[in-house]
């Protein structure tokens, strides 16, 4: 697979090989690649003296890590209690239907990844939709639709 392993060395250099900074290393790796490619994890075990099993354990333990490529945009629906009672399920169902994916999956065109989170601690803003790290509070199905459309449009006009 065509994953560029060149930046791995630099990423590893800034971290001492101990348990505590491994999470930071994985975070930076994910920032760089958008996800944690298998080849990159294997390269890390070659760079620093850490077993692959431990990296894999961390990468599967934390929800924020992903071993599969993500879409260009991440749509994160908070399904915590407060958001739930304020209508998060409706928003989520709508996004699922429109994108044709379940939470955790990426659309076929690689544009959107839909994920859920159990609580973001911003309950007063519920229901909450986070698009690429930007919080959209008190979201309605209509507003979510508009957001989606504008993102899709922007991607169409400006394909990579």
């Amino acid at each position: 697979m065509g994953v560029d392993l060149e930046p791995v060395g630099r990423l590893c250099e800034s971290h001492v090989s101990n348990r505590t900074s491994l999470v930071m290393l994985l975070q930076e790796t994910q920032d760089k690649y958008g996800y944690l490619p298998r080849e990159v994890l294997k390269q890390i075990t070659r760079e620093i003296d850490v077993p692959l099993a431990r990296l894999y354990g961390l990468a599967t333990f934390y929800r924020s890590f992903t071993l599969t490529p993500r879409g260009k945009h991440e749509l994160c629906v908070c399904t915590g209690t407060a958001c739930h009672v304020r209508g998060a399920p409706t928003v989520l169902q709508h996004l699922q239907r429109r994108l044709g994916v379940s939470p955790g999956e990426t659309t076929e065109d690689g544009l959107f990844t839909l994920v859920t989170v159990n609580c973001l601690g911003a309950c007063a803003l519920g229901p909450l939709l986070v698009v690429d790290g930007k919080y959209h509070g008190k979201i309605t199905v209509g507003e979510a639709d508009e957001l989606l459309s504008s993102l899709a449009e922007a991607a169409q006009q400006n394909p990579q």
């Binding site: 298998r38 994890l41 850490v50 077993p51 692959l52 099993a53 431990r54 990296l55 894999y56 354990g57 599967t60 333990f61 071993l67």
Partner: peptide
């Protein structure tokens, strides 16, 4: 000092095995 196996996932999905 080999570390061939480890835990994966967490909660009710936690399991012991080889990476990937």
């Amino acid at each position: 000092g080999v570390g061939a196996i480890g835990f994966a996932d967490r909660g009710i999905d936690r399991e012991v095995g080889v990476p990937f």
